[in-house]
């Protein structure tokens, strides 16, 4: 392969994309323990278009910046929606922002879910924990274009009933006659009447055509590896299994190398990647 340096324009464009715009919090909603959904708007009302699965870099001023997936509807002209779980300094600062507070915004970045490739095929969505946030835009897209896709199966796992994200929406999707939805938790008290068990064990029990389907998987990496194995066992090819590799990002525009994963830069080539492109790297323990 011949090394072809990017033209100056492209480099300048990418450098410009490292400067955040100012956005404001319009609303915040508690989703579960330490998890909040934020609605963002800009002064001029202009919001970037995004594709399902893409992420933005959000800055909590004076603290730092973090990659956060867009969790809203790609078809909506409304505010930009993100769901943040407070795990460290930046995400905690973001999750505690109040309406009217400002936040740095740049993006959207990265490759999203393969909604075009999935057309006319069955779509199996496997979400674990916060992994449902980057998958929600894909679900909105599938619902808005229901006739374009085959069966739609959503398998959604959480730690406990209190940790289930987007509960009201899940209830609505569960009533949708053209969607098969299973929600499960890892453990529950006696008053929970839903499923208990690991989300990946639902894959062999689900009815879809493995030869003509696409699987979209997002969650903790360990959960994704179990999901991939179950999908492979069900007969889905590695090319048709997409996972979101959410390793930490810095520049998000392919300049700094912080997100390098083997030969890929996850901010540019990912975060969503077909499993056949990452399987050899996931097998290397050191990365």
């Amino acid at each position: 392969m011949v090394y072809q340096p990017d033209g100056l324009d492209a480099v300048q464009r990418r450098a410009a994309a490292t400067i955040p715009r100012i956005a404001r919090i319009r609303r915040r909603r508690r989703e579960g323990p330490q998890t909040w959904t934020l609605e963002l708007e800009t002064e001029d009302g202009e919001l970037p278009q995004f594709a399902a699965g893409q992420f933005n870099m959000l800055t909590a001023f004076g603290i730092g910046e973090a990659a956060i997936s867009v969790s809203g509807d790609p078809g909506s002209k409304g505010p930009l929606v993100h769901t943040v779980r407070a795990v460290g300094p930046v995400s905690t600062a973001l999750a505690t922002l109040q309406p009217g507070d400002s936040v740095g915004l740049r993006g959207p970045f990265g490759a999203g879910w393969p909604m075009k490739e999935a057309e006319q095929r069955d779509v199996v969505i496997v979400a674990g924990g916060l992994g449902l946030a980057p998958l929600r835009p894909a679900i909105y897209h599938l619902l808005a274009n229901r006739r374009t896709y085959g069966k739609v199966v959503i398998l959604c796992g959480s730690r406990s009933p209190g940790d289930i994200l987007f509960r009201r929406e899940l209830e609505r999707w569960g009533r949708h006659i053209e969607i098969e939805l299973e929600v499960t938790v890892d453990h529950a008290a006696d008053d929970w009447r839903g499923h208990v068990g690991v989300v990946t064990t639902f894959i062999p029990r689900t009815d879809f055509d493995p030869a003509n389907s696409i699987a979209l998987v997002c969650g903790p990496e360990l959960m994704m590896t179990f999901a991939v194995s179950a999908l492979q066992d069900a007969g889905v090819s590695d090319e048709a299994i997409y996972i979101s590799m959410e390793r930490n990002m810095k520049c998000a525009v392919g300049l700094c190398g912080h997100c390098q994963f083997g030969t890929a830069l996850l901010c540019r080539d990912g975060p969503v990647m077909a499993f056949n492109r990452v399987r050899h790297m996931l097998a290397i323990r050191e990365i």
Partner: peptide, 18 residues
């Protein structure tokens, strides 16, 4: 074996907050 593998994943508490 299926239940043992699932129990391992549950015991690892992968969705837990660090």
């Amino acid at each position: 074996i299926e239940r043992l593998n699932a129990a391992r994943l549950q015991a690892l508490d992968v969705y837990g907050v660090p």
